[in-house]
Design a binder for these strands. Sequence first.
DNA 1: ATATTTTAGTTGCTTCAAGCAACCTAATTT
DNA 2: AAATTAGGTTGCTTGAAGCAACTAAAATAT
Lengths: 164, 164
Amino acid sequence: MKKITFDTRNCSVSQALNVIGEWWTLLIILEAFFGTRRFSDFERHLGISKNVLTDRLQKLVAQGILARVPDPGGKRHIYKLSDKGRELFPVIATLMQWGDNWIMGKGNAPVRLLDKKTGEPIARVTVQSRQGHDLMPRDILMEAGEGHLPEFRERFGVRPGKSR
Amino acid sequence: MKKITFDTRNCSVSQALNVIGEWWTLLIILEAFFGTRRFSDFERHLGISKNVLTDRLQKLVAQGILARVPDPGGKRHIYKLSDKGRELFPVIATLMQWGDNWIMGKGNAPVRLLDKKTGEPIARVTVQSRQGHDLMPRDILMEAGEGHLPEFRERFGVRPGKSR
DNA sequence: ATATTTTAGTTGCTTCAAGCAACCTAATTT
DNA sequence: AAATTAGGTTGCTTGAAGCAACTAAAATAT
């Protein structure tokens, strides 16, 4: 009866969610992007209980998303994003933009992301073709990839020809 | 002692996660992108228990992410993505790419997303400036937006000048 | 140098949510 | 008309989240 984990599913989204999909986890990562690095700051900014925060930080460190490193100039430790963690930025940005548009509503964004160089808001993050055209879900074909299991192949198929 | 929800936090990511951040919810949305529309198909493909599936589908319908509509040519209902739901595609795509790269590893993607028109894989989804340049987290400035609360302003500040 | 406060947790208790099985009614198929 | 499937609901059990109290070490104040 243990909570079902997604790590046995043959799907990258499941695997990703298995690691960052628990309650609080993505908010902790967001806080890390905001610059938070110390246990007590995560706690205060998020209003999360200590035991849950401890659990999530440990898991994130175990996954290599955060690194627990000695605080330079002190005997404590801080948590900082690794490359693996930093590459979650597009996930955070798309979530933020979706929340801005569909929940907060126009003109109510609490945080805006600006291009440091120009001071302008960043562009809307979109899924694009190699040629740089925006693609909607209907413009996209899902196909079983190299690492698929038979079950997936049945559902999606693989085109015989050049798929690369 | 009820599980803390994120809907009172002045943050779009929190608001988004409050709606789609529960265990199973994003996988249900992913399944919907795969084309699943019926209760029993969600159940079978995901291996989720009926009561949890019922709960999540109801919440997604209540939020306007899925619509429960009569099955054309039958007396049953199907669940289909609304515009609000379809606009979660960039979130799913970034999660999938992150999972491909950091968990499954190169060459092990179970599903690939192809441009229907050309048959080529889609581009890596990146955060870009208005001019179309890729931006890393360090290239981005976070600022309190129009809908910020005082607490946020303290943390991020608002530049006095032209921020639009 | 000592005392006080803060930090970064741990432990134990309680309640809510997830997993499971059994059941049920309406629709669909045989 | 009978059997099966779809789409749930209900009740029980276990696991995870919330809360408060406690603790050792580090940082700060005296």
